[in-house]
């Protein structure tokens, strides 16, 4: 038998005015899951500050500072562009902007997915010491990735400025039957497209973060597969090539289309390059947004309160 609690003195705080206990634990409801996300969003000042701090901190004491992000993206894009334009026999004038835009967007996607799996594990100290909505850590991560993206966008701007003459008119990529309309005001579509990407990044980090906190094998799995997916996604090559390889390019195209990251990439990249846009990419991304958020909210409902136990 357990010894009873000894009460020496009836405090005014004791049983008398005490409200009734709720019939059951109320932590597993959609209302709490949604409230977590809403409160996280309201803490903008906190995660906004922390996201900036993460970037500034990474380059503290370096002379060039966050410009390093831009420089490393610039060299990578240039090197990859030169290499693959030779390998695939592509014209550098249109291929370098293509690789740069693709790589800049890919970096954002991959940053959100890989860091998303670590988001709660990496913030163990904060989660155990401060009562904050768990979505704060996710929003901090996505905000940090948005800032990285903004730094990398400089490279894109420079490359497009250099090859503006080639992109400003209807053009074809080498080996691609599609004629692209060239840069126009349609470039503005990249803004809502990127916003949609960020919205998706939040559910990805929430869902993968919760799963990875419980099952620690998930982050290494994701880390090792993501490089494979990089080569499966049309970034250093373009889908036009698939038609050229054989007469029956259809099944190859199907495999490319089955890769969800392709659609996420394409809705942002196509307007950035004045490419022919296809609405089915938007439809796929829209579907993933709804499905993903539903799954993430379900995970939040069931396991949001468990995260602090698992980290």
């Amino acid at each position: 038998m357990e010894p009873p609690v000894v009460s020496f003195l009836v405090q005014p705080t004791s049983t008398v005015e005490r409200p009734e206990a709720p019939p059951e634990a109320n932590s597993r409801t959609f209302a709490r899951a949604i409230a977590d996300v809403r409160e996280g969003w309201q803490n903008r000042e906190l995660w906004g500050h922390l996201g900036w701090q993460d970037i500034k901190q990474r380059y503290r004491r370096s002379v060039i500072g966050p410009l390093w992000i831009t420089i490393s993206m610039g060299t990578t894009a240039l090197a990859l562009g030169l290499l693959y334009s030779q390998l695939f026999n592509q014209e550098i004038n249109t291929f370098l902007p293509y690789i740069t835009a693709g790589f800049v967007v890919w970096n954002f996607l991959v940053g959100c997915v890989t860091e998303g799996t670590d988001v709660f594990i990496a913030n163990e100290g904060l989660i155990k010491h401060l009562p904050a909505p768990i979505s704060v850590h996710v929003l901090r991560l996505v905000w940090r990735q948005v800032l990285f993206f903004a730094h990398n966008l400089v490279v894109y701007a420079v490359v497009v400025a250099i090859f503006f003459g080639d992109l400003n008119q209807p053009y074809q990529m080498q080996d691609d039957p599609v004629t692209h309309p060239g840069l126009s005001w349609a470039i503005l579509l990249a803004i809502p497209a990127f916003a949609l990407l960020a919205v998706n990044a939040v559910w990805v980090a929430l869902l993968f973060g919760i799963i990875s906190t419980r099952f620690r094998d998930i982050p290494p799995v994701i880390h090792s597969f993501i490089n494979l997916i990089f080569f499966m996604t049309p970034i250093v090559w373009h889908t036009g090539i698939l038609h050229k390889v054989g007469a029956d390019g259809d099944w190859r195209m199907l495999i490319a289309e089955l890769n969800p990251l392709y659609h996420f990439l394409e809705i942002v990249r196509a307007p950035m390059l004045g490419h022919q846009q296809s609405w089915h990419h938007w439809a796929v991304v829209g579907g993933f947004t709804v499905l993903g958020w539903a799954l993430a909210l379900l995970a939040m409902r069931n396991y949001r309160a468990r995260v602090s136990y698992w980290v």
Partner: peptide, 8 residues
Amino acid sequence: IYEPTRGS
């Protein structure tokens, strides 16, 4: 920070 595993 910890929500109770049982109780409320």
